[in-house]
Amino acid sequence: MTAIMEAPPAEEKAPRRVALRPGAWIVWGSVVFFLLILLGVVGAVVVNSFGRKWFGGWLPKGWTTHWYGATWKEFDLSGVLTVTLEVALAVVVVSVLVGVPAAYALARRNFPGKRVLMVAFLLPILIPPITYGVPLATVLYKFHLAGRLSGVILANLVPAVPFVILVMTPFIEQIDPKIEAAARMCGARTRVIFTRILGPLLIPGMLAAAILVLVRTVGMFELTFLTAGADSQTLVVALYYSVSAAGIRAQQETDAMAVIYTLSMLVLLVAALRFVNPTQLVTQIKERD
């Protein structure tokens, strides 16, 4: 077995033939089918948001951008977007500040009770938000924190901090501890080690974690929904309320808001994909070609 595996890798560098077997056809066919459905789902919303009137028929009768202005004014979207931004940034900053030191300790030390602690950090990710959201909202209402910006931020931190710890722990594990030891040998104090040795090494991981937390927070519906008051709604929650208020307002206004939401999420995701390779979050094996 080992003899065969150690055989020289006979890699052919020639470009691969494009000859698809039936299995490949089925796979790619279903991918295309999925993407077509997706295009239909997104396209229907986008087309409707620009449509003047659309009752039956392939396309609306006439086009307009009126709904964007209307939805912006009626739902006070500038206020909603400000709240969304405030919540997301606060959650990112606090979760990184709390999560990264914890991840460092978890990556570098083995101590009694570590497994229990890891489970405690995993649970908020494993349990659906509604399950702990209901008791959490009850507690936050008891302390008069819910219904305000601070309550929304606190609730959103619950899955964010463990997420940062989960992403950062393997990242810190792969940084060689000898670097720190060497710096200490050369007389660096703890503060210097953190600011000048570990800090620069940690920045890519922190950036990745921060962007992922940002995407998750902007998209987090349940926790914000349970804790938000009238003036602390984020974009998703405002979108949900506008859907359930359908009938009073034009459908197109809701769709215009949905398009705004998707565009902002898309910008975030494209930014995230520039820094994070999503397929290497779990295992980091060097890709051989």
């Binding site: 239909g40 789902v41 997104v42 229907a44 919303v45 995407v215 998209g219 519906f221 998703v236 979108l239 949900y240 859907v243 809701t254 769709d255 949905a258 939401y261 998707t262 999420m265 898309l266 975030l268 995701l269």
Partner: peptide
Amino acid sequence: TLGTVLTAEG
């Protein structure tokens, strides 16, 4: 990025 609300709407 679509989120549940937009997906439902779509």
